[in-house]
C-alpha cells in the first residue's frame, strides 16, 4: 500500500528505499561523461565477465563501431557510436577544424528514482536495494515480461537463450532461460564495498561511480567547464530530480540531444498516472455492470 501512497505523493527519494531503516546505505549511481569516452568497450567486456552474461551473437551492423546495438538481457552496458559532420567546439568564430566529430556513449540502466519496471513487476522480483538501485531477483522472476514494455528506456528484456544458471525443469521441455535480466549496478560488488565492474574498467573515467549527490555536483562542474570551452551541444541528461522519473540513478553528460544516442528526450514513469487509471477503470467496470444488467432486465425476453 505504501507504494500507492508514493505514487500519490512522490518524494524525492527512490520508492521503497526508506523501508531499509537503519540498514539504508548512501544512494550510489553512475555519472557517465561521454565527452571523455573513447569507445574502447572495456565497460561492456568487464560487465559481461563479472556478471557471467552469455554471448549473444556477433552481428556486423555497419553502424559505426557499434555491434551490440542496444541494451538488453545480455548487454548491460552498450557503447553507442555516432559519426557527425559537426564541429566539436563552437566558441564564436569558427576554429577552422575539419568539423568532424565522433560521439561515443556508454549506456546503462538508469536506476530511476521512480522506476516503472519495479512498480509493475507482479511478483516483487524487481526490488529497490539498500543502495537505492533497482535489481531483478532471478530466483523470483517468472518471466511475465511486464517490465519490458514498461521501461521508458527499453532497458529490460527477456533472455531467450539457454539458461546458464538455474535452468527450468526438464519436464517443461523448455530450454530457454525465460527470465528478465538487466544491470544490477553490480549489487554483489557493492555489498563487498567495491565499485561496479564497468566503472572499475573504464580507462578514462568516463564512467564515474559514487554517491549520487557527489556525482551531481561533479557533473555540474564539468558542464560549466565544457560551456567555457565552447563544446557543441553539451548537456546533462537525467541529472534533475524533477524530471519524469524523479532523476536517474545513472545519468549522463551528452554532446547532442538524447534521441541521437537512442535515448528518449522526456521519459516519464507511466505508473504516475496509475491512480487516475484505476479510477477510470472502476468507472468503466461500474458502467459495464449497470449496462449489462439494464440490457438484460429491461426489454423482451425473446
Amino acid at each position: 500500500m505504501n507504494l500507492l501512497q508514493e505514487l500519490l505523493e512522490p518524494t524525492g527519494d527512490p520508492d521503497g528505499w526508506e523501508a531499509y531503516g537503519d540498514e539504508q546505505k548512501e544512494r550510489v549511481g553512475f555519472f557517465t561523461d561521454t565527452s571523455v569516452c573513447i569507445g574502447c568497450k572495456a565497460c561492456e567486456v568487464a560487465c559481461k565477465e563479472w556478471n557471467l552474461i552469455p554471448e549473444d551473437g556477433r552481428v556486423w551492423t555497419g553502424e559505426s563501431y557499434d555491434h551490440t546495438s542496444q541494451l538488453g538481457a545480455n548487454t548491460w552496458r552498450h557503447v553507442a557510436f555516432v559519426e557527425q559532420r559537426k564541429p566539436l567546439i563552437t566558441n564564436g568564430d569558427d576554429d577552422g577544424s575539419t568539423g568532424l566529430r565522433w560521439l561515443m556513449e556508454s549506456d546503462v540502466c538508469k536506476h530511476c528514482t521512480h522506476a516503472a519496471c519495479l512498480d509493475v513487476c507482479p511478483t516483487g522480483s524487481l526490488f529497490r536495494t539498500e543502495f537505492g538501485t533497482v535489481v531483478v531477483q532471478q530466483d523470483i522472476c517468472n518471466g511475465c515480461g511486464y517490465c519490458v514494455p514498461a521501461c521508458p528506456f527499453g532497458v529490460l528484456d527477456k533472455r531467450h537463450i539457454e539458461a546458464t544458471t538455474d535452468p527450468p525443469p526438464a519436464i517443461l521441455g523448455r530450454k530457454e532461460d525465460g527470465r528478465v535480466w538487466k544491470c544490477t549496478l553490480c549489487y554483489d560488488r557493492l555489498k563487498g564495498g567495491h565499485e561496479p565492474a564497468c566503472a572499475k574498467a573504464c580507462p578514462t573515467k568516463s564512467i564515474q561511480f559514487g554517491p549520487l549527490e557527489e556525482l551531481r555536483e561533479r557533473a555540474d562542474a564539468r558542464l560549466a567547464k565544457l560551456e567555457n570551452e565552447g563544446w557543441n551541444g553539451a548537456q546533462l541528461y537525467g541529472r534533475d530530480p524533477d524530471d519524469g522519473v524523479g532523476g536517474f540513478g545513472a545519468f549522463f553528460l551528452l554532446l547532442d540531444d538524447p534521441e541521437v544516442y537512442g535515448l528518449p528526450p522526456d521519459p516519464v514513469v507511466t505508473t504516475r498516472d496509475l491512480p487516475q487509471m484505476w479510477t477510470n477503470m472502476l468507472a468503466a467496470a461500474g458502467t459495464m455492470l449497470v449496462g449489462v444488467a439494464a440490457l438484460t432486465l429491461f426489454g423482451r425476453r425473446g
Binding site: P122, C141, C144
Partner: peptide, 26 residues
C-alpha cells in the same frame, strides 16, 4: 503458458501490489 517460467506462475500471488495491474489482475 505465456510465462518465461511457467512453473513459477504462483509467484504472482506472493505479494499484493497496487502499482502492478498484472499483480492485481492475477
Amino acid at each position: 503458458s505465456d510465462l518465461g517460467r511457467p512453473e513459477r506462475f504462483h509467484h504472482m500471488l506472493r505479494v499484493v501490489k497496487v502499482t502492478s495491474p498484472m499483480n492485481l489482475g492475477s
